[in-house]
Design a protein around this nucleic acid. Structure first.
Lengths: 199, 199
DNA sequence: TCGTCCATCTTACTGGGAGTAGGTTACCAG
DNA sequence: CTGGTAACCTACTCCCAGTAAGATGGACGA
């Protein structure tokens, strides 16, 4: 093994390791219940090191969140890249999202149990992820829809993000619902609308 | 003034007063940043009193949440009571919700910045509010829709709740969007579907 | 009017975790 | 082998949730 059990470690490596451990602890115990001492111990390092690298407990959380954010952006963009029309793009994007939250449960759990502090950087960061997603959707829409009303389009994008977030949480309680089914349910309401199902 | 500045106060009154103050402090500072000492001081009472009445900081938060929950249920049920058909019911329900979050900003802010601790009673309680809303919607749907697929209907209800939650947050950033407009935007996507707007 | 009782309330503490001051040591360059 | 610096540690402070044990206003019976 190249990186044996050397005590001293280059900054970048140590940082990645810390984020990895922190993501586990935060998602397992919850942000509030997690202690910096515990994370430090699991990393095999003393507490001040964490502060050296991330400044605060919230800073550490922030780093974890940013990490997930980058991944989510990546997969969504790649998924929607080759779409042929609006319906296809929406479906691909939804599927990518539902696959993401299934495969990276810890990361997702972190994002979903965010909200520890109002008006703090971490909350803003999570909000930023949503903006990232809504922007993606809005861009997608402006490419495929007649953009009559600017505000209405923005609202629709927010709507989609919120709906999927909730549906994802619902999926956690329903193991039998796989990403494909979730996508179908979402498309059903979003694309077709409820009117079709009224008596 | 009937209730002058008497020091001693009957249990029920004191409790209401504490909840009222706590709701303000929690929503202003955020749950984590709020301190029991501060709340106690604002109430004009010593800290152990808060613990006498609510057992813990989280218990106090819980009481605030339950309070809001009751109000939200009340207004939604009343709003949808006299609906003539599915579309009408949905529209009335949405409007009631958007009015609620505008008029009881503090309560809403509390609900929305929930989630302080995973797996704790408070998180469960907030989740319970959503269940309350989804149940209402699901019941509404089963009354007006052909219930082909049980699971699909449940998913749709979750979807609606999540979407509205997000749209409500979006509204906070857009003061020009009143409850009526928000309702219209929501109906547009939910009822009509996005397909209608594709080129 | 005056005790008596107890619900309401207080002061003064503990424990635990976030954050920090300042010293120590492994590794690399020359 | 020998600085020099980046990685690291010990040993604290302070703040805040939660608690133990005692004080007191006031309703109500005599």
């Amino acid at each position: 093994m190249t990186t044996a059990k050397r005590k001293r470690m280059p900054r970048a490596d140590r940082m990645r390791q810390m984020i990895e451990v922190a993501e586990q602890v935060f998602s397992a115990r919850g942000y509030a219940a997690a202690s910096m001492d515990e994370i430090a111990e699991l990393v095999g390092v003393s507490k001040p090191m964490l502060y050296e690298y991330f400044n605060s407990k919230e800073g550490l959380l922030l780093a974890c969140i940013r990490e997930s954010r980058a991944v989510l952006r990546e997969v969504t963009e790649q998924a929607t890249a080759g779409a042929v029309d609006a319906e296809d793009a929406l479906r691909r994007g939804l599927l990518a999202f539902f696959v993401f939250i299934r495969e990276r449960r810890q990361a997702w759990s972190l994002l979903r149990h965010e909200m520890v502090l109002i008006g703090t950087p971490a909350a803003d960061e999570v909000e930023e992820i949503r903006r990232q997603q809504t922007d993606l959707i809005a861009a997608l829409m402006s490419g495929h829809f007649d953009s009559g009303d600017e505000l209405r389009a923005e609202a629709a994008a927010e709507f989609v993000v919120g709906a999927c977030e909730r549906l994802a949480i619902w999926c956690e309680r329903h193991a039998e619902v796989n990403p494909e089914t979730a996508t179908e349910y979402a498309m059903d309401v979003l694309w077709t609308g409820l009117r079709q199902r009224a008596r």
